[in-house]
Amino acid sequence: MGDTKVKKMLFILSKATIENAYAAFVMANGARMEGIESEIFFTFFGLEAIQKKKLEHLHVATVGNPAMHMPTMLGGLPGVEAFATKMMKKEMEKLDMPPVGEFLEILSDSGCKLWGCKLAVDMFHLKEEDLIDELDGIITIGDFYNRADQEGTHLLFI
């Protein structure tokens, strides 16, 4: 137990499709559960996952996603993306995966730090009150690199 060389995981989440957001959340939470420190930096479209009004409305990508095994034209039809999202959420609920808002609460309570990217926040004209209360702050990528302050730190771009 506890033999891993990984001591700290830093994630950059740049996308807001459900599959990408959950990949970051599951890995960040999994790190904390193993006693590894973890932090997430939300940038560009990843910011959707921490906007109060948008976070419960993330979608799975049905277009340009070959693993959906669905013709691209079909994936673009009205309602298809919403339907695929509903199906995926149902499957996730079966596995007891929390919805986005609750997952962020769990991460924050578990000691995972959550950061907004300053450049992207400015670019999308967002204010602090648009973002979740659990956010630890709005910082630059330079600040985030400085969070890699110990041996065994890894940085992952999603």
Partner: peptide
């Protein structure tokens, strides 16, 4: 709650 859980069993509370 989760915070207490982590502080009672530091370094991987569930395991």
């Amino acid at each position: 709650n989760i915070k207490e859980f982590y502080s009672l069993f530091p370094g991987g509370p569930l395991k």
